[in-house]
Design a protein around this nucleic acid. Structure first.
Length: 152
DNA sequence: GCCAACGTTGGC
DNA sequence: GCCAACGTTGGC
C-alpha cells in the first residue's frame, strides 16, 4: 500500500467536484516526474490526499483512492482539449493517468501552514521550497499522522 | 498581482 | 550538449 498527494487548483477541480463525480480520470498531468509516480508507483487501492492549491487556505481537503491501473491520458489526443499534446501518440502515449474515486472530505482542511508547523510532518514534499510537483508520494508515517489529525 | 523556483524549449 | 529565454506553478 502506497500513499500519495495530488494537487488541484481549488476553483478548478475540487474535492466537492470529485464527490459529485464519484470518480474521475486524473488527466492533464504534463510533468514527467508526476507522470512517473502515477504510471510506475500507483496501485489500485492506494490512498491519495487531495490538496487544493491557490485556495484560502491551501491545504489538504479530502481523501481519494486509486481505482484503476495506469492508462493513457485521453486528453493528450484531443486537439480541442487544453492539455492536447501533439507529441503524444496513441500507439506510444506520452502521458498516463489513473482513475481516482472519492473517499471523503475532511471537516476541516489541514492547511499548508499547519503542515509546515507540525514537526511530525517535516520533510513532506509540499513543504519543500519551490515545490511544483502535482503528484507526489507521502510516507506512511506522514499519512497516518495526517489521518489522525483530521479524523478528530 | 508579484515573484521565486524550476521545467522546457530552441538557437548555437 | 550548453545555456539563455520563456512559460508555468503556486505561495504570499
Amino acid at each position: 500500500m502506497n500513499y500519495w498527494l495530488v494537487k488541484s487548483e481549488g476553483d478548478c477541480y475540487s474535492i466537492a467536484d470529485l464527490k459529485r463525480d464519484k470518480r474521475t480520470a486524473w488527466t492533464g498531468i504534463r510533468n514527467y516526474q508526476a507522470r512517473n509516480f502515477m504510471r510506475d508507483g500507483m496501485k489500485k487501492g492506494d490512498l491519495v490526499l487531495f490538496y487544493h492549491s491557490q485556495s484560502e487556505p491551501s491545504g489538504i481537503y479530502g481523501l481519494a483512492k486509486v481505482v484503476s491501473e495506469p492508462h493513457p491520458d485521453e486528453t493528450a489526443f484531443d486537439k480541442k482539449d487544453e492539455h492536447y499534446d501533439p507529441k503524444s501518440k496513441r500507439e506510444a502515449p506520452t502521458w498516463m493517468c489513473v482513475d481516482l474515486q472519492y473517499v471523503k472530505t475532511y471537516k476541516e482542511p489541514l492547511s499548508l501552514a499547519d503542515i509546515k508547523r507540525d514537526t511530525k510532518l517535516e520533510g513532506m514534499w509540499v513543504t519543500r521550497k519551490g515545490d511544483r510537483l502535482s503528484v507526489q508520494p507521502v510516507s506512511e508515517k506522514h499519512f497516518k499522522w495526517i489521518e489522525k489529525l483530521l479524523s478528530k
